[in-house]
Simulated assay, not measured.
Amino acid sequence: MNICKKLGSLAVILTVSTVSLFGCSSADRTAAEETVTAFLDIVKSGTSENIEQYASEEVTSGEFVKTFDNEFLIKQLKDGFETEEIDAETSAKVDEFFGTISGMVSGYEISKVTVDKKGKATAIVKINTAFPVNIFGSDETTQKIREAAEAYHAEHDEEIKQLYKDLGDEEADKQLYNKRVQIAMDTYAQIISEATPETYAMVLSLEKNAETDSWYVTSVESFDSSVNGKTETATDTATTAESN
């Protein structure tokens, strides 16, 4: 009877000890996962609004966040334009194109969240995109835009010569510039329409803020970079998505 009581007491002690040892870790994992979810929800929205609540300055100003921030992408593209030369027709086409990239991230999946003995968390996630993120600014895209512009000039050579005769250099240059911008937007749109969805495997590192006792993302790496020590940026590694 006494042995049974002692064994029963030991079982209770072990149960309590287990809760004491791992209960905090479980709570930390849950809290860390909630931070990852909030962070990725903002990324999926295509904005960076309030993202500083869930990530360090290094992350919020880094390539990963900027890659999926519509306002940043639009600004990058517009910075390449001579805005004073853009007419109403071209401006409308540019705005139409920007609308097509607003839903770049179609979804995400948090595969695993762990917390180590040092109190640092790691989350493995998959991010699904409607098209590859490296379309913008890639050598292949630049080449296609250049080829499309050259083809237009070749096909409309006589019209272009007449344009300069009728309008003069300044106005003809302006009209041709607008045409080249339209060609660029059409080329981007075509590439995106023909592209297949992608899934990017990422590793997010998190730490806890000692003052607020809340988790925040401190780094984002591609899965290959994290596991194999490669130097790819966070958006370089992709595999074809099976579904959105």
Rank of each mutant, 00 (worst) to 15 (best):
E85N: 11
I183D: 01
T237L: 03
E158D: 14
L7W: 13
E140L: 07
V125M: 08
A88K: 13
D28K: 15
K75P: 02
I160D: 05
Y200W: 06
S225F: 08
E159D: 15
E58T: 12
E242P: 06
Y200A: 13
L10V: 12
S111K: 14
L10N: 14
V105S: 05
N70P: 00
F98N: 09
V16P: 13
T235W: 00
I110G: 05
T83A: 06
V181D: 01
I192L: 14
S219E: 12
T237Y: 14
L206Y: 10
D169I: 07
D87F: 04
K44Q: 13
T122N: 05
V59F: 08
G107N: 11
T35K: 01
S219N: 13
T187A: 14
T240F: 06
F131H: 11
Q76C: 05
T212H: 04
G62P: 02
T142C: 06
N134R: 10
K161H: 09
S91W: 04
I13N: 07
A11E: 05
T235Y: 00
V181F: 02
T18I: 09
T218N: 09
T218F: 07
Y188L: 15
E158Q: 12
A241N: 07
E158K: 11
L21T: 12
A234L: 08
T114Y: 05
